[in-house]
Nucleic acid binder design. Structure first.
Lengths: 205, 205
DNA sequence: AATTTCAGCGTACACTTGTACGCACAACTG
DNA sequence: CAGTTGTGCGTACAAGTGTACGCTGAAATT
């Protein structure tokens, strides 16, 4: 009873996911990873892989879903925390980028897979983006009302923001440390620019 | 002398590139394509591949560079042509998306590779984006002067625009035909929003 | 205590992969 | 015309792939 079976199984399952994530983090693309390879990295026999995932595809899906959830709750927390204060854009940006840095491989994978066509993951990744945008839009509306300013096309504004966040996020992954600050500041200006634009469009129409 | 050697060689080289592009267009990711496979698709023996490219990497690089050039000149033409008229945003967007549609596989590949870490292609793809942004920024400055309106952070505005163009471009590839119009209109609004924002930021500072 | 369950292993098989090597034969060069 | 050049082919091999099959041993259940 020292090590229950369930616990043991969950552990090796996690080992598989961790090994894959680590490999992704080191720059490998997901679809060059073989079942045998991750099995070896996780320290189990190739055939034992099947006890945990039916497929490399299932493993990838599990990874995306795990990552997506933590990302969404993270952003949620940021908004709750910063709701009282201001500089919300700055805090959100910095938090998101921190997270992306801490999970480079996974972030890249999600972004990449969201673009591939037939992939099983595409749906999952797209859903994540859609949810992020929707959450953000909702917040933008609330915030605009709070501040008493108009807001045109909040959903489109949110879409633009998410797009910029992720493209700069990816760009950051390849940027030498000393230049990162500059890029982050640039992203913040870009987001503010969109805010301004949205507000301007809200006044006229 | 009917078929000169040079010509013949150029033809099979093109066959290799075409075969690869076709495969990409059908949704395959570049790094799941094997040398043997594209050789077979091009109708030559696997070992003959080496007469044209030293590597699958070299082939990919050739593809990206080819595509990049046509893309840049295309956007250039659009601007020259539409300079007199207005609705420049609309024309640019539609032209770009048409092009992306006509070359789905390549576009996706460029985007994807621009994000991968160790890839030989990253540099090429990034360079392309940078050039596009720079060209666009240059144009924005010129256009703003022309219209007598201020323009804050033109380079950042251009970056945002390119980011949005490409993310919606990619999204479009997976969108059923009947919804495409809506997405294109959305992209146009997003670009105008950024314009407005940039102009608003230009007035204050 | 006897039985069932099941994570993990090892072997085995049919593929696919990149690429080394040498040959053929048509296009070029002199 | 003879000689060189170089595209393309076929064979061959080592390495890596997914996965079917049957076994083990210990945890879980009875």
């Amino acid at each position: 009873m020292k090590v229950s079976r369930k616990k043991q199984k969950a552990e090796t399952r996690q080992k598989l996911m961790d090994a894959t994530a680590a490999e992704l983090a080191s720059g490998r693309s997901f679809d060059t990873l073989s079942l045998r390879e991750v099995a070896k990295l996780a320290g189990i026999a190739p055939t034992s892989f099947y006890r945990h995932f039916h497929d490399m595809g299932s493993l990838g899906l599990a990874l995306i879903e795990e990552q997506g959830e933590t990302l969404l709750t993270l952003m949620h927390h940021v908004r709750e925390q910063a709701s009282g204060g201001h500089s919300l854009i700055r805090t959100s940006v910095e938090t998101l980028f921190d997270h992306i840095f801490a999970n480079q491989g996974m972030s890249r994978m999600i972004l990449l897979e969201s673009m591939s066509r037939h992939s099983v993951f595409r749906e999952a990744a797209e859903k994540l983006f859609a949810t992020m945008s929707r959450d953000l839009a909702e917040f933008l509306v609330w915030d605009a009302k709070e501040r008493g300013v108009p807001m045109g096309h909040p959903q489109l504004a949110a879409n633009s923001m998410v797009a910029i966040l992720f493209t700069t996020g990816i760009a950051l992954l390849k940027t030498p440390v000393e230049d990162r600050g500059r890029h982050i500041e640039a992203a913040i200006v870009q987001l503010r620019m969109i805010m301004r634009g949205a507000e301007a469009m809200g006044q006229k129409t």
